[in-house]
Design a protein around this nucleic acid. Structure first.
Lengths: 190, 190
DNA sequence: CGCACCATGTAAAAGGTTACATGATTGA
DNA sequence: TCAATCATGTAACCTTTTACATGGTGCG
């Protein structure tokens, strides 16, 4: 049950339409959470029913409408409560780890191809995470600026550092995984 | 579509019943993959239909039967092919990261409680991973021994090292995450 | 006019979780 | 006999993925 909370977290910055949210969560963007459009629109409807957000119809051109959703007081309360609640550890389910567990069954070359592909993906993820961390520390992202307008200036540094820290963690894990895969490449040659 | 392959990987060691597999994948065990019993029995049925495994009925006592499933040649072929195939990166969906992204919205104490809980879970995971790595390096696990009986002795060291490496990776990620969370605790106090 | 983008939905299927349900065997 | 463990299933529900479906707007 996290998607609603993720949506609330984004809407805390400012009201958005379903379309804007699908852009944010779209597969291409590589954000902390991803969700397809087909999940977002129904979720927004349900959240509105539950009073967590309110939708406002806006008109574009003549007969095109969009619904812009804003977080309600109740939504903000729910979000804050969720943020402070320790969640159960999700079960581990990492297909690459399973593959690696059985690398001895296949030719070293096949296994190495899998690891090399993994490394290049992780390197991309690492770059993204580092770039985003830097942008947050520089307070140079649109959403963070929106959030800061609602809070006293003396809190801005802390906000930026806490958010940047999430992406620093992302980057650190990516670096660890890259090192692991490189060690794997060495082991496969033995 | 990984569960069938995970099951094949286990059955490559030796034939097992659905019950034994549910023990292995049970929530308590904390293995590389987890799956509830209600998922395993139907999966085995389907895999048998697809010719990946064969079930043999065995009798225990008078009127209790169990079905012991063994991997087939076709199953082994399928397993090996899957192991050597680079898989698409699963979308990131980490609820703790989302919580951490919004820690500035809640009292530092709430956020710290969440991080501390996380640290203690990761410490447990770290211990498990390190212990399992050591057991594998010592060739001291039941399944590894079963697997080795089917392979020439000169391969045994490599098998053990490759498998141990998976848990070394687990441990390394856990250490990285613990360090990240501890830095988070520091940041929250600023 | 045509193309990229804006905007919102539904449907079917797959994968996963929780709960319900049943009965046999072994050992204290 | 009682409890723990062995053993196998089904049902309801939720989440996620993939695909289908439709139409408007703005710009060159």
């Amino acid at each position: 049950m996290s998607l609603p909370h993720v949506l609330l977290g984004v809407l805390e910055a400012r009201p958005m339409s379903g379309y804007e949210l699908t852009q944010l969560f779209g597969a291409s963007t590589r954000w902390v959470w991803s969700a397809p459009q087909s999940q977002i629109y129904p979720a927004l409807k349900k959240m509105e029913d539950n009073g967590l957000i309110t939708g406002e119809e806006q008109t574009r051109g003549t007969r095109m409408t969009r619904t812009v959703y804003a977080i309600t007081d109740e939504g903000l309360r729910e979000l804050k409560e969720w943020i402070g609640t320790p969640l159960p550890i999700p079960p581990s389910r990492d297909a690459l780890e399973v593959q690696a567990l059985y690398f001895d069954l296949v030719p070293a070359e096949s296994a190495k191809r899998v690891l090399k592909e993994f490394i290049s993906e992780q390197e991309t993820a690492l770059e993204h995470a580092e770039a985003h961390e830097a942008r947050l520390l520089a307070k140079d992202t649109e959403l963070l600026r929106e959030r800061m307008t609602k809070r006293p200036v003396e809190q801005h540094d802390r906000m930026a550092r806490l958010k940047a820290h999430v992406f620093a963690g992302h980057a650190a894990v990516a670096r660890t995984r890259i090192a692991w895969a490189q060690e794997g490449l060495r082991l496969l040659d033995e």
